[in-house]
């Protein structure tokens, strides 16, 4: 009967191939700690690289085999962290959230533009191909390479031409930091709200010719901090004020005397 023959034939094929697979499975077996698979499944799976590893699988492997810290995933919420802790048998505390801070206030009103750039919509391309992108050699050209790099839709170019970061959506993964060709974006804890939003090392004369929001290195913020018995909070070098992030102790009063508004409070976020 052909039905019987077909059944036996198919069954035999299945049997033979499954035996092949058993042999192959034994021959090519790779010992994998099952905790790695469990952790990988618990992680968000976005592969954003915020933890510093290339992918969620790499991070999972590092946790189990190299003892990496469990709270390095910036996207994980407290529920996920608890799950990770459960798999590894430890308690996990979420580190303080860091967000991206765009260190430039040279928008279309403040900064000078020698011409109109009509080229590839990429900041690196604009900077390396011409000088028309912006007069300031240190500032943000607003073409959105950081926007393109963000996997969380957390950064957008405002109508004034400077990127704005959403505190809620930003996970501090650092992709925009890598994408900016002028290294203008830095990751800082949310609680740190005062920064010097400028990286220009040009002397004070630039105020009129390059950008009216630039830091001219006048040192008035340093004076205010010193008067408050906080001399190391801010330093000026190369015509640029730099905040001491190792020992962050800034108050709102320090920024009041700034002539250009370069050192400022809660800029470029929403």
């Amino acid at each position: 009967m052909s039905i019987l023959f077909s059944t036996i034939l198919m069954g035999s094929i299945g049997l033979i191939f499954s035996i092949f697979l058993v042999i192959a499975n034994k021959k090519f077996h790779v010992e994998v700690d099952e905790r790695i698979t469990k952790i990988e499944e618990a992680l968000p799976g976005v592969n954003c690289g915020g933890c510093g590893f290339a992918s969620c699988s790499n991070y999972a492997e590092a946790i189990v085999t190299k003892g990496s810290k469990l709270n390095m995933c910036v996207v994980a919420d407290s529920e996920t962290l608890a799950k990770l802790g459960e798999i590894m048998g430890v308690k996990v505390e979420k580190g303080e959230k860091k967000i991206a801070v765009v260190m430039c206030r040279g928008d279309r009103e403040a900064a000078k533009f020698p011409g109109i750039y009509k080229g590839i919509k990429d900041c690196a391309a604009a900077i390396y191909s011409s000088d028309v992108a912006k007069r300031c050699k240190y500032g943000c050209v607003g073409l959105g390479s950081c926007v393109a790099a963000c996997p969380f839709d957390a950064i957008h170019i405002s109508e004034h031409g400077i990127p704005i970061v959403s505190i809620e959506k930003c996970t501090g993964c650092g992709n925009c930091v890598e994408a900016c060709p002028r290294n203008l974006i830095e990751l800082h804890p949310v609680s740190q709200k005062i920064h010097v939003y400028c990286k220009s090392k040009d002397p004070g004369a630039i105020y009129k010719t390059v950008c009216t929001n630039a830091c001219i290195g006048c040192g008035l913020c340093v004076k205010a901090a010193t008067n408050d018995n906080n001399p190391d909070a801010i330093k000026v070098s190369d015509n640029l004020a730099v905040v001491n992030y190792d020992n962050y102790k800034l108050k709102k009063e320090y920024i009041e005397k700034c002539p250009t508004g370069a050192i400022n409070f809660e800029q470029n976020v929403k």
Binding site: I3, S6, T7, L9, M10, G11, I13, G14, S18, L21
Partner: peptide
């Protein structure tokens, strides 16, 4: 698993 599925499929 594979053999049983194959048998049922064949039938």
């Amino acid at each position: 698993a594979l053999t049983i599925v194959s048998i049922i499929a064949g039938f």
